[in-house]
């Protein structure tokens, strides 16, 4: 389901005006993987990522149902809510920065994922993940949104509430940082 497809609009309509849980279930199916992934790379703990993702979908439901504004981009809405949820999560945990690379936590993430790949690839991916873990949250965010979730600059700008040029600069710097880490 693309974000501007008729089907999505129709499901949103059903959610908003008919409080149709079934329709919302379908939207959940379309977005749950993405939102989980996004949150996971921010919090590095599968359990927390699951909890936060669950909260994101509940909050989105409330928002769609009660807002006066038209929800024209569900994709952006979900990511925005996810971002805010992670921020709240950190406030609760009283953390200012990203958690330090924790080998045990890291292993949890890799082992508990439903990924079918051969060993070589796994190693490579581990590398990139380690690198991602080490960069700033701002950098990591734009990299994930751009290169994992295939979002446009426009969409990213709307999600993180920054200008387009800002996003481009962040992306450039983020990739540079990753390169530096990988060549260490």
């Amino acid at each position: 389901m693309t974000s501007h497809s008729l089907k999505e609009k129709y499901l949103l309509y059903k959610v908003r005006y008919q409080h149709d849980a079934g329709a919302y279930g379908l939207l959940y199916d379309a977005y749950v993987d993405k939102i989980f992934r996004f949150v996971l790379y921010k919090v590095s703990s599968v359990e927390d990522a699951e909890d936060i993702t669950a909260e994101v979908f509940l909050k989105s439901w409330q928002f769609i149902r009660t807002t006066n504004k038209r929800v024209s981009n569900l994709n952006a809405l979900l990511y925005r809510i996810a971002r805010n949820a992670v921020i709240d999560y950190y406030r609760q945990k009283k953390r200012q920065d990203l958690p330090l690379t924790d080998e045990d936590q890291y292993r949890d993430i890799v082992d508990s994922r439903d990924v079918e790949r051969d060993i070589d690839l796994k190693l490579e991916v581990k590398n990139i993940e380690r690198a991602l873990d080490r960069i700033k949250d701002d950098y990591r965010e734009v990299i994930i949104l751009r290169y994992v979730e295939d979002m446009s600059i426009n969409e990213i700008a709307s999600i993180i509430n920054k200008s387009k040029s800002n996003v481009r600069v962040l992306l450039h710097r983020a990739i540079k940082r990753i390169q530096e880490i990988l060549s260490e």
Binding site: Y24, G25, Y28, D29, V32, D33, F36, R37, L40, V46, A49, E50, T53, A54, F57, L58, W61, S112, R113, D114, V115, E116, R117, L121, E124, V125, N127, I128, E129, I143, I144, Y147, V148, E149, I175, I178, Q179, L182
Partner: peptide, 25 residues
């Protein structure tokens, strides 16, 4: 780097969690 990043798309949540969470939601 880009290729590796793209591979991260395969990262998915646990199937049983997805299902259970859906029901709860």
């Amino acid at each position: 780097i880009f290729k590796q990043l793209e591979d991260l798309k395969n990262v998915k949540p646990r199937e049983d969690w997805v299902r259970a969470n859906r029901e709860v939601l």
